[in-house]
């Protein structure tokens, strides 16, 4: 299937709106989901470090005479 030109490819036989409407939304849904998953983990790790860092500081202080 060789497309005559890029504009022909994007026209998609006159159905460009529907075809690219489907693929763009699909791409953004998947990319969005990945971004959300990464974001969820990053915020959690930040919260956990807020909890665990003070504890480690306390442990270090105990060793100083």
């Amino acid at each position: 299937m060789s497309w005559a030109s890029w504009s022909d490819f994007f026209a998609m036989g006159g159905y460009g709106f529907y075809v690219w409407g489907s693929y763009l939304v699909s791409f953004f849904c998947m990319a969005g989901e990945i971004a959300l998953a990464f974001n969820r983990k990053r915020t959690l790790l930040r919260q956990l470090s807020l909890i665990h860092k003070p504890i480690q500081k306390e442990q270090n202080n105990e060793t100083t005479p």
Binding site: M12, G13, G14, Y15, Y18, V19, S22, Y23, S26
Partner: peptide, 11 residues
Amino acid sequence: QSEAYRIIFIH
């Protein structure tokens, strides 16, 4: 359906 059928690859 000419080119519209290509939606099938994600649908």
